[in-house]
Write a protein that binds this DNA or RNA. Structure first.
Lengths: 195, 195, 195, 195
DNA sequence: GATGAATGAGTCTTCATTCAT
DNA sequence: CATGAATGAAGACTCATTCAT
């Protein structure tokens, strides 16, 4: 058992959900701790047993959501597939997850584009958080001559930038996405990075 | 003489600059009106002669920056070029502008990904703000069989999603971009959308 | 236990007292919430747990005082007396109370003559707040031929107008009132309304 | 010619009217100098040439209105009438004027019941502003044995309290007053003070 | 552990007043 | 004299955080 008892985990989860709902709907500064507590059906003071401050809640929520996405994607990752299969799987799996949990997407984007995420991204790109999947697909793929030889950041933007932009519009209801559109889309993304 | 005199325009401009600086650095709710006033070297009350409220300032600032970018890009748009030339110009011009004015980029992204922009984007995609350049490049290009035939939103994501992602990382210092990288990048973007 | 605990009621009472003092002394807009809080020895924020806004405080304070006066007067009301006894009791009891609590009088008058009381008075006269004592004295008295047959509002003015005017001057120290003067006064008031 | 030229007097009058309108409608602190200026169609700064401060405006406006009422009433005062005729004239004339200019009444009451009028009333009662009409009616009347022998303040309240109360309700629309009601009313008032 | 009343620093906004033009 | 842009002190209200129960 963890530091938090069974009931404790429930409360933590309630808080996470309530925070997610409200932050997405109202923005970080439009969602007071008291409102989050109310929606989570806990006392204000209780929130501070799980998260030392509002900023910490905001940060931890981000890591939490990021972790869930990662777990989902890694679950069925085709270790034996071709580079293209691996890349398209990564794209589709991410999209499926984020289309199912649009709040997660909106939250992460909001977080990412706010001063809260100041030092965050740095870690990933600078390699502290060097991602296993990334290496498996892009570094191997580049070496194998299947993928354009480009700086890490440029490649990343080509590989995932379209998805982020597309999800934004999808979630806001500006695009309809069926199986056909997703296939066309992933194919086009591959065109951008393939040699 | 305009509604605002010479000196008035100066003040308005000062406020815009100060607001831009601080919103980008601290976020919307991390930048009090009083701090903005101080940096703009005007009294707090003065801000309210130019912008009826903080929210209005945030909104108007967005429109202002959007307008400047648009003006810059349209200035040298190659009306006579090929589809590819036009698209790559659009990409490069936007990038050049936003790399020169990174704050503008950061501000617009922050705005976009916050609840402030609620009804905003809708207009563009739904066509109220139907963009002349967009039609000139993508609709003509699709008809001419040069560009993939895809839903508006999907095409948009492929065409500009990578740029947004790349600028994010560039501005945060995670990628270096020289002329060579930009050329490789725009070429790859074209690969994504070309038939 | 009530919505507000024992201590809570104390605080509410403290706030009421402090607000009464300051509103009477300085007027509504001369008494900032912060000053009221200070005098009530609570934090500013605390005031907002008991009254949702300054306006609400002003309104509730009025109803509170009105209720106290009413309760005091009704306590010893001579249900079995003659019409004149009842009327003079009503006058004397009100005067005694308001002479003892001059702030209550001043507050109610200030409230009454300010735009805060917009829709207030209407209710009383239009009868929503049809008062039991009023009926017992004036309607019965009129029917019995003891009191002049006059429109409700005219009768009301004759019956209580003098008292209001007198209390104003008494409280400001312009008149001294002993038992003798009060007796002469109530008798004269009766002269005005008696047939 | 006065200190202020013809046009100047116009402006002063405009300001007075605008201030009266707005103070009555919104209360003293609900009517900013800028709004008054706007309604008076003068610049804010101009107001300060006619009234040194907002408080001064509020005070002077009161004296102005008081003076107008007094002038109106004195104009046709029946110097040769009986005591009762004189008293009833005073009542009716005041009522007619204030029913015609309800704003004047509301303004004076609001002023009177606010902390602005602190030291005001004192003067009248303490005799600095000893009123000629008052003496002509009440002091003579008392000496002649026509009017009850009561302290000045008590008599005043009996004589004018009902009128104030009645006007309040009339202006708020709670009573209709025709010639008949006014006659009944003044008669009843006389009953209160007559011996 | 949980609660929620209390705190008070910090925010946006208003508005009386001034003064350069 | 008139103007109205500029000023900044002051005020209503919010909300992250604490702590006694």
């Amino acid at each position: 058992m963890n530091i938090h008892s069974q009931r404790g985990m429930d409360k933590r989860e309630e808080i996470i959900q309530a925070a997610l709902d409200l932050f997405v709907e109202k923005g970080f500064h439009g969602a007071p701790m008291s409102d989050i507590a109310e929606r989570a059906k806990v006392a204000v003071g209780t929130m501070y047993r799980y998260f030392p401050s509002k900023d910490a809640l905001i940060d931890e929520l981000f890591y939490e959501l990021q972790g869930r996405l990662k777990a989902f994607v890694e679950e069925r990752y085709p270790r034996q597939g071709t580079t293209r299969e691996k890349y398209e799987y990564l794209l589709r799996a991410s999209m499926r997850y984020l289309m199912d949990y649009p709040q997660h997407f909106l939250y992460m984007e909001q977080y990412f584009n706010s001063p809260y995420s100041a030092s965050l991204h740095r870690d990933r790109i600078l390699g502290k958080d060097r991602d296993a999947l990334w290496e498996d697909i892009f570094e191997k793929g580049t070496e194998a001559g299947e993928i354009k030889s480009l700086p890490r950041g440029v490649l990343f933007s080509l590989a995932f930038g379209p998805m982020i932009a597309l999800l934004r519009d999808y979630i806001r209801g500006f695009v309809k996405l069926g199986e056909k559109e997703i296939s066309q889309f992933t194919a086009a993304c591959w065109d951008a990075i393939k040699k």
